[in-house]
């Protein structure tokens, strides 16, 4: 019987050791790297990061992207999961098509939209055919920041709405239909049923979806590079640049610390904003 009490610990031990080595240790190392300078410990690297010409832009771009794309994705995913409830046939195939982007790398998504939005791309072809433009036109340069932002937003929206959708559909499936039926028996309209019954019951799923998506959106990197190249710096692409091109691991670590702190803060905000109310079981 002694073995019985030891067994679960033996079973979790490998994964625990692995995460310790490849999650906690690098986490500590990141912080250590960020604070270690040639003259000892200090905030010199952070000063260097702040002096980086692209720092302000990367902060603005990152936050702009996250704050625009995540709410849009939540709205779209909510709409999609509500639509799905009324689909009578072909549910299986529709689900598959709608979730395909879930399996697509952010780099691939960036390339997809690059093909569409480049000078001689498909968007310009359509615009040309309908007579809006007279020839190839560039949208993805630093001269057209608005269009570039929209392009990256579109690519990110196209790729990553599926994950929000899947989490919400999984949540909707957990809500017994009787609640909505009860509401409609008591005279609630479709909108009232959604607003007063479904949405509150869906709060735990919305919370999870938002946390997952927001943390990933702060990490957005390849999609940005593919569509915008160097013209649209974000925090993680700056970290990559410092690490790889400038070979300055310390400043790269500073960016990593910043991204980590921002992600944690966002998670905390979402957790608090959507916490279960007192007396409500989560």
């Amino acid at each position: 019987m002694r073995g019985q009490t030891l067994r679960p610990y033996l079973l979790i031990m490998p994964s625990l050791a692995f995460l310790l080595l490849l999650f906690f240790v690098p986490l500590v190392q990141t912080v250590a790297l960020a604070f270690s300078t040639t003259t000892g410990t200090g905030v010199g690297n952070f000063v260097q990061m702040l002096d980086d010409l692209d720092f302000r832009d990367s902060v603005r771009n990152t936050f702009g992207l996250v704050l625009c794309v995540v709410p849009l994705q939540l709205l779209a995913a909510l709409g999609m999961s509500m639509m799905l409830r009324h689909v009578r046939w072909g549910r299986d195939i529709i689900l598959w098509i709608w979730t395909i982007p879930l399996g697509i790398s952010d780099l691939a998504a960036g390339l997809v939209w690059l093909a569409i939005l480049t000078d001689k791309g498909y968007l310009n072809t359509i615009l040309f055919e309908v007579g809006v433009i007279s020839g190839p036109q560039s949208w993805l340069t630093y001269e057209t920041p608005g269009a570039l932002f929209l392009a990256i937003l579109t690519a990110e929206f196209w790729r990553a709405t599926a994950i929000v959708f899947v989490v919400l559909v999984a949540g909707v499936q957990l809500i017994p239909r009787e609640y909505e039926e009860a509401a409609s028996v008591f005279g609630a309209t479709a909108w009232q049923r959604f607003r007063r019954v479904t949405l509150p019951l869906l709060r735990p799923s919305i919370q999870t979806a938002l946390i997952l998506r927001t943390v990933l959106a702060f990490e957005a990197f390849a999609v940005v590079l593919a569509v915008g190249g160097r013209n649209f710096p974000v925090l993680v692409s700056q970290a990559y640049l410092w690490q790889f091109t400038n070979q300055n691991y310390n400043v790269a670590a500073c960016y990593a610390v910043l991204v980590t702190l921002v992600s944690l803060a966002a998670t905390l905000v979402i957790l608090i904003a959507l916490r279960p109310r007192a007396g409500e079981s989560a």
């Binding site: 979790i12 999650f23 690098p26 946390i211 691991y249 992600s263």
Partner: peptide, 27 residues
Amino acid sequence: GANLYRLMILMTRAFPVGILALPLAVS
């Protein structure tokens, strides 16, 4: 400790784990 372990696993979600490749490259 089961709950602690589960919490730890869930917590990794709040971190941009990919970023940790930076110090790992050095190691």
